[in-house]
């Protein structure tokens, strides 16, 4: 079946892929060749081709995380040619298409590199640290039932829109992988800003930011030095402004904190 662009020529590529059997075994880069890659393919479909080839050859396929393949679940997490999710701005790996590469290219594919994200196998990493940060306070403490009508509290549209923008974080970890300090500040700031902006989140804003930052530090993420590569590489465009909001929230919480420890 021909694609939408029948003139697109298939490509032959060299892949340098990180292979690591499990967390406790050392890994290394391994070179593979893939042939007849259509420019219409997504990057993960290209890896599917590689894996089918490997399986037919009796070799263990390359493990990588993926699921929705439409840029929203946050599962895919490849570091391609030294960049989180590869060369295209504002794009997850699953939405990156091979038309962004050229015949004969060599492509280097690594997992996210961060102490807080240990490798499970090959390109799959453990991002449960993000879940633990959310568990530390990334919520509004309401039980099911007994809440006011949805229109009880009017929220100015610009506030709602800003909260929404922050809430679109997909939790992929590209920001951590892009940061030379492996800092999780952009991820944490997105949730803190969303809930600090909304009236529903205000009652807990002080404890929330303190607890989430504390958990973030505990997980071994690095400090933020305001370079901004996180926001530059974020596939959904979470703004650096959120880190400014986070810092303000944190300082004002600390200044009046009940937690003297």
């Amino acid at each position: 079946m021909a694609g939408s662009n029948p003139n697109a020529k298939p490509m032959n590529l060299t892949l340098n892929v990180w292979r690591q059997p499990n967390r406790s075994t050392e890994g290394k880069m391994v070179e593979y060749k893939v042939k007849d890659i259509s420019p219409e393919m997504s990057f993960l479909e290209m890896l599917d081709v590689l894996n089918e080839d490997l399986l037919h050859a009796g070799t263990d396929p390359v493990a990588f995380d993926h699921d929705c393949r439409e840029g929203i679940c946050g599962s895919c997490d490849l570091f391609i040619n030294g960049r989180s999710h590869g060369p295209e701005k504002g794009t997850t790996t699953c939405q990156l298409h091979m038309r962004k590469f050229s015949d004969g290219d060599t492509i280097t594919i690594e997992p996210w590199r961060a102490n807080a994200f240990p490798v499970n196998k090959d390109l799959s990493v453990d991002r449960s640290a993000f879940d633990r940060i959310i568990q530390a306070g990334g919520y509004v403490s309401v039980n099911t039932g007994g809440v006011p009508d949805g229109n009880e509290i009017a929220i100015p549209k610009d506030i709602a829109d800003r909260a929404f923008e922050a809430a679109t974080c997909i939790g992929c970890g590209a920001c951590v992988a892009a940061c030379k300090n492996a800092s999780a500040m952009l991820f944490v700031s997105a949730k803190v800003s969303q809930l600090a902006l909304l009236p529903q989140g205000k009652p807990e804003r002080k404890t929330r930011v303190e607890n989430m930052i504390e958990q973030m530090d505990k997980e071994g993420f690095g400090a933020c030095s305001n370079i901004g590569s996180c926001a530059a590489e974020c596939p959904v465009g979470i703004s650096l402004e959120n880190i400014a909001i986070l810092n303000r929230e944190y300082i004002s919480a600390k200044a009046t904190s009940n937690n003297l420890a």
């Binding site: 309401v142 949805g150 009017a154 929220i155 549209k157 809430a167 909304l198 529903q200």
Partner: peptide, 22 residues
């Protein structure tokens, strides 16, 4: 009807009109 109320209370940022309502 209760679902919408619940989600708003959780901080789900639904689209809103200029008057601030859903």
């Amino acid at each position: 009807v209760s679902i919408i109320d619940q989600c708003v209370a959780q901080g789900v940022p639904f689209a809103r009109e200029y008057g601030g309502l859903l």
